[in-house]
Amino acid sequence: MAFTLPDLPYARTALAPHISEETLNFHYGKHHQAYVTNLNGLVAGGPLENASLEAVIKDSAGDKAKAGVFNNSAQVWNHTFYWHSMKPGGGGKPHGKVADLIERDLGGYDEFVKAFKAAGATQFGSGWAWLVYKGGKLAITKTPNAETPLTEAGTAPLLTMDVWEHAYYLDYQNRRPDYIDTFLSSLVNWDFANQNLADAGA
């Protein structure tokens, strides 16, 4: 197969009690795997069969005839990025360059928290909240369904939080705000954000 399910960067038990092994068994083992399986079926024998995941996403973005390819490829990428946006013992205030830019561009950590929580809580239905680097500055954005900042020229994703219900429902039921609070206080991986910032040339 052209695409395979990437390994998690930690054990399925590693984010407990904030995100349970049961959630990861379903979210990673079932949902993420299904996107990979579907994508392989959609590109098999075609011109995108041996393309990179990023190339498939950019080729299919905005093309209604390739909506299935885009939705599955973008969800494979978004989920992989999301797993790395968390780590055991994560959360709390940032450090390094991303901390400096949060202060400069977003009004400080407390204002970042308010804006990021709002992005996640007000994304109607399924989607994602993002911290991105765009135009030399940090910004907070949200995308519906499988949409991703990866398709926006000059935009580098730094972190994402999945707000599809399957990301949190087994652990938090309908309490999306509690899940968002926990993501920020106990899970967010600032080392990953700093690495993505460095890769973007910041």
Rank of each mutant, 00 (worst) to 15 (best):
K114L: 11
L42F: 02
E165M: 08
L158H: 07
S52R: 03
Q75W: 00
G96I: 11
T182E: 10
N25K: 11
K58G: 02
G120K: 08
F116N: 10
Y109D: 14
G107L: 12
L138W: 06
I57W: 00
K114M: 11
A61N: 08
R12P: 01
F183P: 04
G127I: 09
E111I: 13
N194Y: 14
M1Y: 06
A202N: 13
D63P: 03
A51Q: 07
K114Y: 07
M1S: 12
P157K: 12
V132A: 08
W164G: 02
S60L: 04
A11S: 13
R104D: 12
F70D: 01
L15N: 05
S126G: 15
Y179T: 01
L170T: 14
M86I: 12
D105F: 09
E165H: 01
K87D: 09
A156D: 14
G120N: 12
A14Q: 02
Y109E: 15
N145S: 07
D191R: 08
A51I: 01
L8R: 07
A61C: 07
G45F: 07
G135D: 14
L138K: 09
A65P: 05
P17I: 05
Y168S: 10
I19Q: 01
K117L: 09
T13Y: 08
T37W: 04
T80L: 02
P88L: 12
A153Y: 12
T160N: 14
A121M: 06
G68F: 00
F116W: 07
E152N: 09
T141S: 10
P144L: 09
S52F: 03
S73K: 01
R12I: 14
D105H: 11
